[in-house]
Simulated scan of single mutants.
Amino acid sequence: MSHPSPWFESPDDAARRLAEHGYLADPATATTAYLAGALEKPLLVEGPAGVGKTELAKAVARVTGAELVRLQCYEGLDEARALYEWNYKKQLLRIQATGEQSWEQTHDDIFTEEFLLTRPLLTAIRREQPTVLLVDEVDKTDVEVEGLLLEVLSDFQVTIPELGTVEAVRRPYVVLTSNATRELSEAVKRRCLYLHLEYPDAEREREIVTGQVPDLDTRVAEQLVAAVGRLRDLDLKKSPSIAESVDWARTLVALEIGELDEKAIADTLGVVLKHASDQDKAVRELKLRS
């Protein structure tokens, strides 16, 4: 690549700059974030929902001033939604307007840039400025989309039959996230650097929460982190994410709660647990009183 790397100079540089923008990376995360840029390899981040996988990609974009291009994966996602499709309505209008000209002329007229709808993968490949491509929740897609991703991530080029091959001028910084609801193919994993994220330990989570909510009392912060840890130990439908810990901290500051006792937890549980069955279980198991 002819461009200087816009990413990180070292793992320490990654850790420092990410922290300055509110993302506290442990040594493994900082090292892998640095290597993804230095080696120009996609980074696969796996772990339960709410541990900061998506936020890592957003933080890299914020830190480096890169544009974030996001492909949100879901069941039934196809090439047209991930890569590109033609604007058929506009093409039809052009065909009607051209009248009598030959099909060859019409074909050359309607299969041009003007009628191309670029989706996230093609958008990221074509950008000349630094770009972070986030392929979010890749485990929710079908195997066919994995094949498409393999094709794109191996060569960073896309062939559009009507227009030819589009090759990346500047490789994007690629982050794939997975909640591990299904096993990804070995071929995809082979092409990626791998990072497994878990919920942070109590000390790191306290740092994250107080970094985001500096008005939170130190003692309440410790009580909050302990309470979140107890909730995550329960067999819940959806454990509290780090973002929900931060939301809870903001709630406690807004309500001027100076002691996170059982009543305060029960009163504000809806900020961190979004399923009625989880709230019932928490109240029962932790013997909370409202």
Rank of each mutant, 00 (worst) to 15 (best):
M1K: 11
H3E: 12
P4L: 15
P4V: 14
P4R: 12
P6K: 14
W7V: 02
A14W: 06
A19G: 10
Y23T: 10
L24I: 14
A25V: 10
P27E: 12
T29I: 06
L39S: 10
E40F: 02
L44S: 05
V45Q: 07
P48F: 07
G50S: 04
K53N: 06
A59H: 01
A59L: 03
A61M: 05
R62H: 13
R62V: 01
A66W: 01
L71R: 09
Q72W: 13
D78G: 14
L83R: 13
W86Q: 05
L93N: 15
R94C: 14
R94K: 15
R94N: 13
I95N: 12
E100W: 10
Q105C: 00
Q105N: 08
T106A: 11
I110Q: 01
P120E: 03
L121S: 03
L122P: 09
T123K: 09
A124D: 04
R127D: 03
Q129V: 06
P130H: 08
V132A: 04
L133W: 00
L134D: 02
T141L: 00
T141K: 02
D142N: 08
E144P: 00
L153P: 04
L153V: 06
D155H: 14
F156N: 11
V166G: 00
A168V: 05
Y173Q: 06
A187Q: 07
V188K: 04
L193P: 10
L195I: 01
D201K: 10
E203L: 12
E203F: 14
R206N: 10
G211D: 12
Q212P: 05
Q212G: 04
D217F: 07
A221S: 07
A221H: 03
Q223N: 13
A227L: 11
L231C: 14
L231R: 08
R232L: 09
R232T: 10
D233Q: 14
L234I: 01
L236D: 12
K237T: 12
S241L: 03
I242H: 08
A243M: 02
S245A: 13
W248K: 02
L252V: 02
D261K: 09
K263A: 15
D267S: 11
K274S: 15
A282L: 08
K287F: 04
L288D: 04
L288S: 00
R289I: 15
